[in-house]
Design a protein around this nucleic acid. Structure first.
Lengths: 363, 363
DNA sequence: TCCCCTGACTAATGCGCATTAGTCACCGGC
DNA sequence: GCCGGTGACTAATGCGCATTAGTCAGGGGA
């Protein structure tokens, strides 16, 4: 954190004392009038009007730091992400979430403060701790992405700071979080495929052991277990295939081998790169097959932006805006009631798409 | 008694006084040790070590609110846009700017506060003025988009509030702004076309009288004036054609008529809808012509997202991220030095594209 | 008439920290 | 032995606000 040279940033910034002088009252009165007079102290309408007029005239705005220090609140919600909040590389992945966060925050009368954890935080002891500590300026904070360092975050939570993590994060005891219901959505996709007539399907996972991935696999297995599917899919390499290098392992011949075993539907999960899905699509292509005529494909999530032009994959959409909104709701519940009891899981919407259909008649 | 509604966030948080007690020194000393002792006051290594150890043991972390209150600044930069900061519809238009704003703000140790014009702030009088007043909570503020109401903004500026507008905005005396150098970029495009051999070219403008449009036209005319181009292009309807309804006016026959007059290059400017460019492309298409074989096309700006798949137009790119970064630099200069003397114009990068080439040999 | 309300405010305090003025023991020099 | 000067700290102050204790004039009730 680069310290600025001594600067008088708030040159003309009016304070309550100045409003008070202009209105001919005391600073206390100004505070009383402007903060809604929660003490129930009676005030003359005249005085009130004078104060408001003076404040308006001076363009008074309360200092959030002072408000917060005086043990009140400042109606600021923090949004912290360890990487840039507006990422350039993972194009727009957080953006839709922020849309939801902003809408909900505005609706509830909060402003948003963006805290970005700079990867380079040299000097100060405690490393990332200092970074995370800044969020205390806000009444509460949303944490974005699984790269938020656990230790400082735990400290924050232990000390009672209202925090909500966006994305499943239950390794931190006591940390509230909201997440997409990947398990249910995946199960829904499996059920839809089953309804189309598929009896045997394979889930292609990347080796990434993200929580979201675990959820999807759980949902997948659970849904398989519901019908005859489990037994049917258990043959061959099993219903879940975990690959380290999708492009190399998921080939045309791999697809043909699965088809020969009776697999008729292939499911991949969305990841940062969507490598598994890409590999799957490429392999099907290379095998001279097309979906949904020869086999069915499903993507557990949304396709990456650069594949936007292609056939819309069957699967589900994570309602990212809704996720952000839910996070804000949970956080404000924490702030006002001291406890959040909203469900942390946001349902995903099934997306019909055009890559799944009835399995081809057995040869 | 317990606090009523607001969660007591500062439960177990140690403060400097406690660290001081543990280390057997005064609070001042703790502050001195922990804040790097900028006063150059000498401290015993022993004392220093004791304090650091005590702080570590207690898990001390400074309260940012107090720190900022004492420092008389809050290291917060506002970002205000009259429409939602994260618009859902024109999602991509502000985003790249925000990327630049965030990067530069982080680099300079500032956090960002997002203000949304649409937020309902009841109670305060003054209508839209009150909206803008909220930004005073930040040390300074960036304003995005030309829909920021002029009157309240003027008031802010007049009262010495550090504000920077993103996008040219010189009708407000004293308001700092940063903008893209459309004139220079346009001139560059003209020069490139001239270098390719074009002697006669037409700029198609929409009736929109935006400042950016004016700049482009100015650059266009200026560059024409440099060579033989002006005289050559002055014939016919003149070098600049302003159309109210591009789709209706820019037709295949219009293009043919211009070609017949000797025009070999057509330039359109980017607008929200890019109607002129779309019309031009459609008209060329309808005339059975192709660029750059039969004629050259250039777009002063970036093509809209839905045309991303098509041939990349020759023209220039507005470095939006750089624009955001420049705005932050200007604002911080305002904050620390009291005056910004950085150039408000950000150069645009020429984009070769594939729609311009040498003019076809005269028939 | 005195006293105690009550209404409408104001003075004073403190949040946690940074900063500014001390304070005080010790040391060298004359 | 006295004095000025360091060096190493501490007391006090104030940032801007919310909150807690007043204060003070006017108005019944006894």
């Amino acid at each position: 954190m680069a310290e600025q040279p001594v600067a008088k940033a708030r040159r003309g910034r009016p304070r309550q004392a100045e409003v008070a002088r202009l209105a001919g009252v005391s600073q206390t009165t100004v505070s009383l009038v402007l903060s809604g007079n929660k003490q129930g102290i009676a005030l003359h309408p005249d005085t009130r009007a004078r104060v408001l007029e003076a404040a308006r005239q001076l363009g008074y705005a309360p200092d959030p730091a002072a408000r917060r220090l005086a043990a009140a609140r400042n109606d600021l919600l923090g949004v912290f992400s360890f990487t840039a909040t507006f990422p350039t590389d993972v194009a727009h992945s957080y953006y839709p979430i922020l849309v939801g966060v902003e809408q909900e925050a505005v609706a509830r009368g909060y402003d948003l403060v963006l805290f970005t954890g700079s990867s380079a935080a040299p000097g100060r002891g405690g490393g990332g701790a200092a970074e995370l500590n800044r969020v205390r300026l806000a009444d509460g904070c949303l944490f974005l992405g699984r790269h938020v360092p656990a230790d400082p975050l735990r400290r924050l939570v232990e000390q009672g700071y209202p925090a909500v993590h966006i994305g499943r994060r239950d390794e931190l005891e006591g940390l509230a979080w909201v997440g997409a219901d990947y398990a249910a959505a995946t199960a829904e996709v499996v059920r839809r495929l089953a309804a189309l007539g598929h009896r045997r399907m394979v889930l292609v996972c990347e080796s990434d052991q993200a929580l979201a991935s675990v959820d999807r696999e759980r949902g997948f297995r659970a849904a398989l277990g519901e019908g005859e599917l489990a037994r049917a899919s258990d043959a061959g390499p099993g219903p879940v295939v975990r690959v380290a290098d999708p492009a190399a392992e998921i080939t045309a011949s791999w697809v043909r081998a699965r088809l020969a075993e009776g697999v008729t539907a292939f499911v991949a999960e969305e990841t940062d790169t969507c490598a598994a899905w890409r590999a799957l699509v490429a392999a099907v292509d290379a095998a001279g097959l097309t979906a949904p005529a020869d086999l069915s494909l499903a993507l557990l999530g949304a396709p990456p932006a650069d594949l936007a032009g292609r056939t819309e994959p069957t699967g589900f959409d994570v309602p990212k805006a809704e996720l952000g909104a839910a996070a804000v709701r949970t956080l404000t519940a924490l702030l006002t009631e001291g406890g959040a009891d909203c469900s942390p899981l946001v349902p995903c919407a099934f997306r019909s798409g055009h890559t799944a259909g009835p399995p081809p008649p057995a040869p």
